[in-house]
Every structure is written in structure tokens, then in C-alpha cells.
Amino acid sequence: MNELTKSERTRKFIIESTAPIFNVKGVAGTSLSDLTEATHLTKGSIYGNFENKEEVALAAFDHNWASVKNVITQKTQECGTCKEMLLVYAGLYNHIDNPLFPAGGCPLLNTTVEADDTNEVLRKRAGDGILSWKKNLVSIIKKGIAAKEFRADVDANKIAFSMIALIEGAILINRATKNKANSDHVFAVLEDLVVSMEFKKKI
């Protein structure tokens, strides 16, 4: 593996140091002083490695989302069935002290809510994240269909989007009401959805 150059190390340090701040405060709420305080670097050092604050925010989002995906990938690889792989999402996302997320919660939800009408570049990046997530879920569902874990008539795309909607909706409800019992109901529906796909062997 090639070692990082000094410039690459500096960029990596800036991204890792500021990613939690962007996820908590958003792009609009994060100031230059927040970045310099977190990194102990000057404005010149930061903008010598990034064109502007938006470019740092994009890199921070990529870092935060990659961290979430890495945890999910690790957990799903430990599963023996496709059903277990899908249920991993309910277990990981529905956690009161969620180790899955960086500070501030789900970066997809945070970024989408903030950027929807204010930052098209960030909105698209979050949208691409959702589509990538959907693609991964579809792959798991189709693998389950091929292995006769799930029924052949299951619409993988519909189920995948529904799972994402339930997960992100549950997170939103939990954060808005500050009552995990409310989001528990949604995650129970998610689990029922996964179970409903199961292939029933004829007796």
C-alpha cells in the first residue's frame, strides 16, 4: 500500500476532524472558526487543501456515510442467511445509543433535510447514497430469492425502498418525539416486512 503524501494526510485529517461537526451543525451552521478550532489549522491551511467550505462538507458527508456502510457491511458479513442480513438493519438502526452513526445521527437524513432546498450538490450526494443503499438491499433480496429464502414474486425494488423509508422515517420520528417507543413500532413493521417475504415450503 502506498503511503499518503503530506497533502493527502492533511486532507484526511481535516475531513476526519470536521465530519462530526458538519453532521451535527450542517453546512450552514458550521463556521470557518468551527473548522479551524477542530483542526487547529489556519484558514489558509484548510483552504489550501479544499476550495471552499462546501467541498469540505462534501468530503465530510462521504466520510460519515462510508463509516456507516462499513459497520453495516461488517455486521451483514457475519450473517448466515439473507433474512438475517436484512434484519441487521433493524438491529443497528434501532439502538438507543447508536454506535452506527457519527455524532449527530444518520448523515443521510441530516444531509437530505438540510440540503433539500438549499444545496443541490449535497442533495444529490445524499440521493446517490440512498440509491446505492437501495442497490445493496436489492442484491441481498435477489440473493435470498435465488436461495429460496424469499418468494419468487417478491418485488425487490419495492421492498428495498420501503425498508429505507421505514428506517429513515423511524429515525425522524424518534428524534422529533424523543420517544424511542414510537420508532420501535416502525421497526416492528420493518421486521414484519422482511418476514413476509419468506418462502413457505409446502407441507
Score class of each variant (00 low, 15 high):
90 A>G: 11
96 I>L: 15
82 C>Q: 12
89 Y>E: 08
41 L>K: 02
34 D>T: 07
34 D>P: 07
32 L>H: 15
91 G>T: 10
36 T>S: 04
85 M>S: 05
71 V>M: 06
58 L>D: 06
41 L>T: 10
107 P>H: 02
46 I>L: 15
111 T>L: 07
105 G>F: 03
122 L>T: 00
78 E>R: 10
32 L>M: 12
95 H>P: 08
97 D>I: 04
81 T>I: 13
100 L>V: 06
52 N>D: 14
83 K>W: 14
92 L>T: 03
51 E>N: 11
86 L>S: 04
93 Y>A: 05
35 L>F: 12
77 Q>F: 10
56 V>K: 02
27 V>N: 04
60 A>R: 03
39 T>Y: 12
43 K>N: 09
34 D>M: 09
81 T>D: 08
46 I>F: 05
65 W>H: 11
38 A>K: 12
53 K>A: 03
109 L>T: 14
37 E>L: 12
48 G>E: 00
101 F>T: 06
64 N>C: 12
90 A>K: 03
79 C>D: 03
38 A>S: 12
109 L>Y: 11
109 L>H: 07
38 A>D: 14
115 A>T: 13
49 N>A: 15
66 A>K: 15
37 E>I: 02
52 N>L: 04
46 I>H: 05
48 G>N: 02
82 C>N: 15
76 T>N: 01
91 G>I: 06
37 E>M: 13
46 I>R: 01
81 T>Q: 09
82 C>K: 06
93 Y>K: 00
105 G>K: 01
81 T>R: 09
78 E>P: 06
48 G>F: 11
43 K>V: 14
56 V>I: 14
30 T>E: 07
38 A>C: 11
31 S>F: 11
67 S>C: 06
102 P>D: 10
86 L>P: 04
96 I>N: 13
54 E>T: 09
55 E>K: 15
99 P>H: 00
102 P>H: 04
